[in-house]
Write a protein that binds this DNA or RNA. Structure first.
Lengths: 234, 234
DNA sequence: GATGATTTGTACGTATGTATA
DNA sequence: ATATACATACGTACAAATCAT
């Protein structure tokens, strides 16, 4: 039997809505109407409300009293602010990874990085996007700091709706892989400062390279690029 | 007319419960029973549930499906993890403050710091505790990064239930003031690296100096030190 | 600026899942 | 292990606030 990790309806609904937001199916600024959602999911408004509160807690939604809930919409200024903080958090992950990774984790990281190289050679952009997530997740875990891991992942997810793959992605992933290489090398050397610097550098390049999705209050009907392809190479 | 900033009952109840947790009236591990709270506040369980979800979103409470909600209780290990992240966030605040503070803010910071010196001379421990909060808040704001400000304040609040004023507080505040001085000097010099290092140093000293409140599943009846005096000098 | 439509906030009752005897 | 008790999760109904006209 399929035993779901999340058991309450609110949890499952939150998961669905979270994915929709992260993948751009629900766009920033878009309204999250309790009644409509209740109808769509075939439940009462109660679990919907719970889910919306949870989304708010992740930073993916914003609700004001008696005014409803909308998908979080941030301007250029705050977007830059968030990038700055995420850079620092990821840099700290890299630093701690350099200090604390076990030999086993180091080897796993090497293999992971090598796999990324293959994907670049094959020009498998989609595969590299998935690999990229794995790579960063490996560093979060490698920090051996559960709170840092959780916090960094949360900020990354919060940033997702506002980043998307740039056009010349094939070109970009080669750069990304090279930057990852600098981080990996520093970690394997146990050079914490260099690892942190390399990661900060990587992230700041990512910020410049990423296409910002302009804040939009338009309805979901708008299509634009295929939402399933929206992602970034960071 | 007293126009409250938060309007819904859930918001007000969250505020009350949040204060109780931060001030140690509700201890880590303690159960937050919906029915009892509903009776105490004279409302139905619905707004209570909303408030508990909001507390969970701040990280002050933890609820598991069908098992109820308790005040967040973290072990030594995770406490250290959170301290590490907070140190880095505050250091970033100091760094950005050194880069971005306006002349007006610099002057205000100087005055604030001078005020702290007076409090130390007078031996006003309680006053210094309040001053300390103001000092750190000033640096959060001085970073001119709204997301960083919000994030750092959130982590600090989350840490509050597990820190308390040490016995030799009078001795400690003198040290704290001196450490603040190093940060202020670096900021006024516009030396971002030095400001960040000084703040990181300050925070790591704070972590060592602070009395950890041992995780407790005991009921609230336990008194211990006066909850209203629980605070830390950081 | 007042009124009506719509949406959120709250109360209360029922069902379901967890823990204890 | 089964059953009982109890707290939470969900559904429904109503009240209150916002916005649109």
């Amino acid at each position: 039997m399929t035993k779901h990790p999340k058991r309450t309806q609110a949890d499952m609904i939150r998961e669905v809505l979270s994915d929709r937001i992260v993948h751009g199916i629900l766009r920033p600024g878009e309204a999250l109407d309790e009644t409509s959602l209740a109808a769509e999911f075939g439940v009462s408004r109660t679990p919907i409300r719970e889910a919306l509160r949870q989304l708010e807690s992740i930073g993916l939604a914003l609700s004001r009293p008696h005014r409803g809930t909308i998908v979080t919409n941030v301007g250029e200024r705050e977007l830059h602010d968030i990038f700055r903080v995420m850079g620092e958090l990821e840099a700290l992950c890299a630093r701690l990874s350099a200090e604390a990774m076990t030999p086993g984790e180091c080897e796993a990281l090497s293999h992971l990085h090598a796999h990324g190289a293959e994907l670049v050679l094959r020009g498998d952009v989609g595969g590299y996007l998935a690999h990229n997530e794995q790579f960063h997740d490996a560093l979060y875990a490698g920090s051996h700091n559960g709170f840092l891991e959780e916090t960094t992942r949360s900020v990354r997810r919060r940033l997702a709706p506002f980043r998307r793959m740039q056009f010349e992605a094939l070109h970009r992933i080669a750069h990304s892989q090279r930057e990852h290489g600098a981080v990996v090398a520093a970690i394997l050397d146990g050079d914490a400062d260099r690892a942190a610097r390399a990661m900060l550098e990587h992230l700041s390049i990512v910020e410049r390279a990423v296409d910002r999705i302009s804040p939009s209050h338009r309805a979901a009907g708008e299509d634009g690029a295929d939402p399933l392809l929206r992602a970034d190479v960071g």
